[in-house]
Computed example of a mutant assay.
Amino acid sequence: MNKIGVFFGTETGTTRLIAKKIQKKLGDDIASKPLNVNRITPAEMLQYDALILGTPSYGVEEIPGLQAGGQEANWAEFLAQLNLDKPDFSGKRIALFGLGAQERYPERFASSLMRLYEVFKGYGAELVGSWSTEGYTFEQSAAVVDGRFVGLVIDQRTQSMHTDERIEGWVEQVRPLLLEKIGVTV
């Protein structure tokens, strides 16, 4: 597919909101309408060579879903289907974003993001779009590798005033990498 696929899991709608902001920043001409992972199949995701995937954080390094106390299917159920299908994501380039609440859960801030990172890396995807931990206050996050988050992290609860600026900076960073993958020159 010659567009960037944007997919998210959500419980309260906040991750959907952030996915829509990211897609709008990229533009309709290069990014598909964001889709909830509880409404797609792995085959639909595999149609894209460049993807942006977003998740809220739940539990201690858990991925959101019914077993984590969610009200509807989410990433846990999608990843279970992915594990059955055993897809090949080699050749795919993926940028991740995750939500977290650093004051409420400082000991596991945005940790669900790491689960997506591990799963898609394990299926051969190239992950891009790490993000600085500067400006955040937390004790621990599984989503930090070599001093950086494995993707954009948004704290809409306590730092919503930084959301648009963070999205803008991150999109500028990942846009050329994702466009390159779909054959669009910047």
Rank of each mutant, 00 (worst) to 15 (best):
L99C: 05
G100M: 07
G100F: 09
A101H: 04
A101E: 02
Y105Q: 07
Y105W: 15
P106M: 11
P106I: 10
P106F: 13
R108S: 14
F109M: 01
F109C: 06
S111F: 09
S111G: 13
S112E: 07
L113V: 11
L113E: 14
L113M: 13
M114K: 09
M114R: 06
M114E: 10
M114F: 06
M114H: 07
R115K: 05
L116C: 08
Y117T: 01
Y117P: 07
E118M: 14
E118P: 00
E118W: 11
V119T: 03
F120M: 09
F120N: 10
F120V: 10
F120R: 12
G122K: 08
G122I: 11
G122W: 15
G122P: 14
G124K: 05
G124V: 00
A125Y: 15
A125L: 14
E126M: 06
E126R: 12
E126A: 04
L127R: 15
L127K: 14
V128Y: 10
G129S: 00
G129T: 11
S130V: 02
W131H: 06
S132R: 03
S132P: 12
S132L: 01
S132I: 06
T133G: 03
T133V: 01
T133W: 00
E134P: 15
Y136V: 02
T137L: 03
T137D: 09
E139M: 13
E139Q: 10
Q140G: 14
Q140D: 14
Q140F: 14
S141T: 09
S141C: 08
A143F: 08
A143N: 12
V144D: 12
V144N: 13
V144P: 05
V145P: 15
D146R: 15
D146H: 15
D146W: 15
D146N: 15
D146P: 15
G147D: 15
G147S: 14
R148G: 00
R148L: 03
R148C: 01
F149K: 04
F149D: 00
V150R: 10
V150M: 05
G151K: 04
L152E: 00
V153A: 11
I154P: 08
I154F: 13
Q156L: 01
R157P: 06
R157N: 03
R157E: 03
R157G: 03
T158E: 08
T158Y: 02
T158P: 08
T158Q: 04
Q159N: 04
Q159F: 03
S160L: 07
M161E: 12
M161C: 15
M161G: 12
H162D: 02
H162I: 00
D164E: 09
E165V: 04
E165C: 10
E165Y: 00
R166S: 03
R166C: 00
I167S: 11
W170C: 02
W170Q: 02
W170N: 01
V171A: 03
V171M: 05
E172T: 04
E172H: 14
E172G: 01
Q173E: 09
Q173L: 05
V174D: 04
V174A: 02
R175Q: 10
R175P: 05
R175E: 07
R175H: 11
R175S: 09
P176R: 04
L177N: 04
L177G: 13
L177T: 06
L178H: 08
L178D: 10
L179S: 12
L179I: 09
L179G: 11
E180P: 07
E180A: 11
E180R: 11
E180S: 14
K181L: 09
K181W: 14
K181V: 13
K181Y: 07
